Amino acid sequence: MESIKLGISACLLGEPVRYDGGHKLDRFLRDTLGRYVQYVPVCPEVECGMSVPRESMHLEGDPEAPRLITTRTGRDMTAMMVEWARRRLEEPALQDLCGFVFKSNSPSSGMERVKIFKDGMPKRNASGIFAGLFMKRFPLVPVEDEGRLHDPVLRENFIERIFIARRWREVMNQGTKAGDLVDFHSRHKLQLMAHSPKHLSAMGKLVAEGKKVPSAQLRAEYHRLLMEALKLKATAKKNTNVLQHIMGYFKKELSQDEKQELLEIIDRYHDGFVPLIVPVTLIGHYVRKYDQPYLKGQYYLNPHPIELQLRNHV
């Protein structure tokens, strides 16, 4: 797989582009996740023509159409930002992104809960101007901010989504062979089950009736359901259901002791005593030991590089 193209607020990579000339380097994003992605850094404020350092800004007005105002002199910088952003969003560098990591609380790049003033009173219910325009222009592209990525569940969910988004783009780039979508769906079934059995069912029906639907419409609807499903968190309850489902593929192979051991480990995971990586590792051992062909192809068992340690939390 080629590197995942990921947009990112430039200050998170250590670039000194903030209003005070500083940065907000995030070492996990730069040094750990950065080994597996190709970053496309963006600083809306600098790229639209503002200087470093510069006067700080905040949002004012309606959260659906916020104004970008300098905090000391009261200058309205909205038009400058919006005009640049609309051009930037049509550039090829942003057209092929598999995700974007925004800077939390930024009036230009905050994903959500950015402070906005209305009638002199602040509320945290806005998005930064560039981030808001990006999400409207690319509603299916996974997005997060670096603050939320400190939560291990949200971090795992986001990284899982960008790896799937990359695989989806590879399928799209291969052409329109009917078997490509069938294979993609088959290999992601257990992963989808862990997020939303309801979406998995709808996607299965869509793929099964694929010949009745124009190819472009089929893929667009499948893509929408795919990204919608993956935004839902894979909970311990849903993961336990998947793990128990996987056990069914070893009915004849596992000895009684092996079945009992696996059931006990799944129960310990469900009850919060061990992380997901423990039952998944044991299942991976059985997949190799008994050469289970269907499970070998399931991304659920290897959704992202183990070096990211995303399934190690309880």
Rank of each mutant, 00 (worst) to 15 (best):
R187H: 00
E91H: 15
L12M: 08
G204C: 12
G248D: 07
H150M: 09
N312A: 15
R169D: 08
R288Y: 12
R167G: 02
N125M: 09
S109H: 08
E47L: 13
L262D: 07
S196Q: 08
V182C: 03
Q292A: 12
P139D: 07
M1W: 09
A208Y: 11
R187Q: 06
C11F: 00
M193A: 11
L12S: 02
E307M: 11
G21D: 07
F117P: 00
G21Q: 07
E64S: 13
G34Q: 03
G204S: 11
M77E: 14
V52S: 11
I69D: 04
S106A: 11
S106R: 06
I306W: 09
K198H: 09
E156I: 00
H245F: 08
P275M: 07
L225N: 05
Q292V: 10
A65H: 14
G284F: 09
I246M: 01
G34F: 03
I129S: 02
S196A: 10
K237L: 06
F138N: 05
D291W: 14
T78Q: 14
A194C: 04
E264P: 00
R18W: 00
H285K: 15
E228V: 05
K238G: 01
P275A: 03
G248P: 04
R124M: 12
R72V: 13
R187G: 01
M203N: 06
E209Q: 14
